[in-house]
């Protein structure tokens, strides 16, 4: 993001919180991004990310005036992170789908729906008088148009530069830094890592079978989640083996016909809601599905929705379900 996006529109009132003079942070952000871009291999990436993070954490941050900062977001992952940091967004694109795909953390009732994320409603957005607008690579083509309203910053977790969980951690810190909640972000990250570590211990004791994590597309096709996605990262972090070994796309899923699941053998199956209502009944009528070890032995669990393209809050939600089952 170039500095010009920080230009303040002339017609805005003086009430807005200042985001000017972000020089120090910009410099560190640059280092941080270079950390991502310079990596060639996955092994190297974690180190590079952490180096970038260190540079970020050392950088000067805004004074903690987050309570008054009005942030509008065009992405669920960034929105849930903001909520976790205690700064719920004032506006969110596709807000009406939140309860179906994200659920937790609860979206505060006052959050305004900005419409379709590919073309957010700028009139509504401007009426919210945001101080900052957050985008990702996928909605980036609107940035120029949005920068008329408020400074625009782009933070993308799913860009393939690092495994999703690592990148989500980095983005959490970067976001915290950006909105003056660096301490909260570090605390939340530490809390998340402690949570994962605790689960890892418990799972080691319990001796968990490998799991297959999937969403049903229809009665014949599933998305199965693997590296470098969020679910795979969480499973690694909480010490459960992911039965899906092949590398998937950069969002961490692969669309496969159901029969391919047979190769996962004895693995337990975790299915994420929403499941198309005809999928399981249709499959139940066929021996291929009924004879899958997990189905046959009743080790298939349908979990409540958890956003597989989310950030740390979704990761923790999924970690909870993966460890404790649907009732968690």
């Amino acid at each position: 993001m170039k500095a010009h996006s920080f230009r303040r529109p002339a017609h805005r009132g003086a009430a807005a919180v200042s985001l000017d003079d972000p020089q120090g942070r910009l410099a560190s952000r640059q280092q941080f991004l270079e950390g991502f871009q310079s990596v060639g291999t996955r092994q190297a990436s974690r180190r590079a990310v952490l180096a970038g993070l260190a540079a970020l954490l050392a950088a000067p941050v805004l004074p903690a005036r987050a309570a008054s900062l009005r942030v509008a977001v065009l992405d669920y992952a960034l929105a849930e992170t903001l909520i976790a940091l205690g700064l719920p967004p004032v506006g969110l694109s596709n807000a009406r789908g939140w309860s179906r795909w994200v659920v937790e953390p609860v979206l505060p009732a006052g959050t305004v729906d900005l419409g379709i994320d590919l073309a957010v409603n700028r009139e509504v957005l401007a009426s919210l008088k945001p101080d900052l607008i957050l985008t990702t690579d996928y909605v980036a083509q609107q940035e120029e148009a949005l920068s008329v309203i408020a400074p625009v910053k782009r933070l993308t977790i799913y860009d393939g530069s690092a495994p999703a969980l690592d990148k989500a951690k980095a983005v959490t810190l970067a976001l915290g830094d950006m909105v003056g909640l660096a301490a909260e972000a570090s605390r939340f990250l530490a809390e998340t890592e402690a949570d994962f570590a605790g689960r890892k211990q418990r799972n080691a004791v319990a001796g968990r079978r490998p799991v297959l994590v999937l969403s049903f597309m229809d009665a014949r096709h599933v998305r199965v989640y693997g590296r470098p996605g969020l679910a795979a990262g969480v499973l690694d972090a909480i010490g459960i083996s992911n039965a899906w070994k092949p590398e998937t796309n950069l969002w961490g899923f692969e669309t496969v016909p159901v029969e391919r699941l047979a190769q996962a053998g004895e693995a337990d199956i975790l299915v994420l809601d929403p499941v198309p209502p005809d999928a399981l009944p249709t499959l139940q009528r066929g021996p291929l599905w009924r004879e899958l070890p997990a189905v046959k032995r009743g080790r298939l669990t349908v979990l409540p929705p958890a956003l597989m393209f989310g950030a740390l809050p979704s990761a923790r939600r999924f970690a909870r379900f993966a460890t404790e089952g649907a009732s968690a």
Partner: peptide, 25 residues
């Protein structure tokens, strides 16, 4: 697909005509 549910990928798969089968039914 755009307005109602951007995650409606099943519809897209169906529109593409996959022949995969899991039973004789």
């Amino acid at each position: 697909t755009l307005v109602e549910d951007r995650y409606l990928a099943g519809l897209l798969i169906w529109g593409a005509g996959s022949l995969s089968q899991q039973s004789w039914e």
